[in-house]
Design a protein around this nucleic acid. Structure first.
Lengths: 157, 157
DNA sequence: GGGGAAAGCCGTGGCGCACTCACATGATCA
DNA sequence: TGATCATGTGAGTGCGCCACGGCTTTCCCC
């Protein structure tokens, strides 16, 4: 991920894609769901449920946990958002609709999360599973470390 | 994992290995830590922290969360136990001391967790990371599905 | 060896975050 | 208008950590 980019494009694209996906699936992209998805897309970091809750509260209205969790459930159901298990946090999916497995590079320094889609990795996972006659239904693949940008920053400093 | 096996061997081996590892590292394998490791090794399922807490309470003494979490932190530090992020649960490591990355097959039916060590998978992860110039420090690789035994059981039934 | 500081281990109260259930209300759509 | 889906609300459970204090083990110096 580049150090800087026009992030408003990311947001707009994500919202437009969400609109499209929900239309395709015949599901409702309500105002609340839209607001929460937008909050998640404020950056490329994974967002905590209670941070969303606080933001909702700050925007005036009341907000209880189920409000947030129901929206998150919906967004995950539609493939618009992924949960990062090792952080208990949520991140927007940059290419919803594609049939893909989720593999993440999580920078412990800048906290940015990048979704990767390596076919080689995907194949290795499948072959490791089939070797044990294991039938995969869901996978969690989260790599923590330091992203290339942060490595450069460190050298520069 | 075979349907049945002499599990007492698993427990004894794990405890002996723990003894060895702690001796090597010059760290203390106290009674509490030993008891908790033994509880975790009661089966091949991942164990919840609060279940350990309950067991401790049943054994008579008092028990508060930090008691369990400190022991778990220690055991993880020594590489004797892994955390399954997608379950918020903990599992004993069958080969502590080895330099290895953790990859798990988690059966959603019988709940057994099997640790796998595929070199191919390991290489794929490394190559996916290096492609993005990402420096890995920790990885979470958890595959949920149905193990071979449970698939057989289903067919039989 | 013995005394005492230092370090490590563990008990305890309390708290913040993560998530869910049950029920009631309100909006949409057929 | 009835059925369905979305959201508000109160409450409760599970997960994990902080801060404090007491106890034990280790270590070092006399």
């Amino acid at each position: 991920m580049a150090h800087s980019h026009d992030h408003s494009v990311c947001i707009d694209t994500a919202l437009a894609e969400a609109e499209r996906v929900c239309a395709e699936n015949g599901s409702r992209f309500t105002d609340l769901r839209r607001r929460i998805l937008k909050m998640i897309w404020q950056g490329h970091k994974a967002v905590k449920a209670y941070d969303l809750l606080d933001q909702l509260a700050n925007e005036g209205g009341s907000a209880k946990p189920p409000t947030v969790y129901r929206a998150l459930d919906f967004l995950m159901e539609e493939g618009l958002v992924h949960k990062i298990e090792s952080l208990n946090a949520y991140i927007g999916c940059p290419h919803p609709g594609d049939d893909h497995v989720s593999q993440f590079l999580i920078c412990d320094s800048c906290e940015n999360v990048r979704e990767v889609a390596s076919d080689e990795l995907k194949e290795s996972v499948l072959s490791a599973a089939s070797e044990a006659s294991f039938k995969i239904r869901r996978q969690t693949l989260e790599l923590h470390g330091v992203c290339s940008d942060c490595q450069k920053d460190k050298q520069a400093a």
